[in-house]
């Protein structure tokens, strides 16, 4: 276990180092921030001063080395546009995205797993077919369109839920969260549902495929022959066996929801990281984009680690590190 963690940390450090090079090089390939940042009326002297101030006059490798040196001490540069530390900007938006993503995942699990198991147990029933047809819709409908439909239905026509913003927030250790207030939850619900729709479909399909496979296993038959109740057979014997693929995919999806919930955040004007990324790319605010991408990489690493730890909880045959095989 300890060996596993140490090895994993070393791998993560390498991943982050490689990613920072890629991100830094990639960001150089797109546009020249000077054109966007400095007013066209500025004269040559002002331009040169601005370029020197931002450090853009130095060659790329020098820029990278100074960036990397600062990054090691936690400084990912200062936003060209806002003039404040880039990492601060990203982390400020992070809680909003995190809570939205978490709620979306909870919705996906709470709706997706029961429906998927049902469809897997009774694949030929009407309900099973309807669930599967519905999951195809969930896969195919574009997120932005569903988001607008949700706004039209629940915010405009019915007026039940607000259409945009975060609503009231409560500070926990100085970090604002919406999910602790009723008003905040109301604001979260529609965007979370929008984000969850695709994941629900995914979870339904995984749970159904797993259930169909597991339900035919001898150990399920043996469980029935032991006289167990159907609730126990489905809720323990089947559920625990189908969770491994579900957890794997949910882990990956959780990362992508946090990193790329751009569309939903735009539609619902949710002040999360996705919106910050789009704005920063448009303004060629390099440090913010770099900081954002590095935070995302870190996030994926952490999620993958958690998923691996969950595996060993779910399946006793998986021993982390493989040292004691």
């Amino acid at each position: 276990m300890l060996v596993f963690l140490i090895r994993r940390l070393a791998q993560s450090a390498i991943v982050i180092a490689v990613m920072s090079v890629l991100v830094f090089a990639g960001i150089f390939a797109i546009g020249n921030p000077i054109d966007v940042l400095i007013s066209p009326e500025a004269d040559e002297i002002e331009r040169a001063a601005a370029i020197a101030r931002l450090g853009l006059d130095r060659p790329m490798h020098e820029q990278f080395l100074s960036f990397a040196g600062n990054a090691l001490s936690g400084d990912l540069g200062t936003s060209f546009v806002h003039g404040v530390p880039a990492i601060g900007l990203v982390l400020e938006r992070f809680p909003a995205t995190l809570e939205l993503a978490l709620l979306a995942m909870i919705i996906a699990v709470v709706i997706g797993i029961p429906l998927g198991i049902w469809a897997g147990l009774k694949p030929d029933s009407a309900a099973g077919r309807i669930i599967m047809a519905g999951s195809i819709l969930g896969f195919s409908l574009p997120t932005f369109w569903v988001g607008m439909l949700l706004i039209m239905a629940f915010a405009v026509s019915l007026g039940w839920l607000p259409a945009s913003g975060r609503g009231a927030t409560v500070d926990v250790f100085g970090v604002p969260f919406s999910f602790l207030t009723l008003n905040g939850l109301k604001h979260m619900f529609l965007p979370a549902l929008n984000l969850a729709l695709f994941k629900v479909s995914l979870v339904i399909r995984l749970a159904r495929a797993g259930t169909r496979e597991v339900a035919l296993q001898d150990y399920v038959r043996f469980a029935r022959a032991k006289g167990l109740s159907p609730a126990r057979i489905v809720g323990v014997h089947i559920l625990k066996n189908i969770m491994i693929p579900v957890v794997t995919v949910l882990g990956l999806e959780f990362g992508s929801v946090i990193a790329f919930s751009v569309v939903t955040e735009s539609v619902f004007a949710w002040p999360g990281m996705g919106k910050l990324l789009i704005d920063s790319i448009l303004l060629l605010d390099r440090p913010v984009v770099v900081a954002y991408l590095l935070v995302t990489v870190l996030l994926f690493i952490v999620i993958n680690l958690v998923v691996d730890l969950l595996y060993s909880l779910l399946d006793p045959r998986i021993r982390l590190g493989g040292a004691k095989a």
């Binding site: 296993q217 001898d218 150990y219 038959r221 043996f222 469980a223 323990v236 014997h237 625990k240 066996n241 779910l314 399946d315 006793p316 045959r317």
Partner: peptide, 10 residues
């Protein structure tokens, strides 16, 4: 088949 009758994760 005793390999299959016990649930592997319990």
């Amino acid at each position: 088949d005793p390999m299959m009758t016990l649930n592997p994760v319990l």
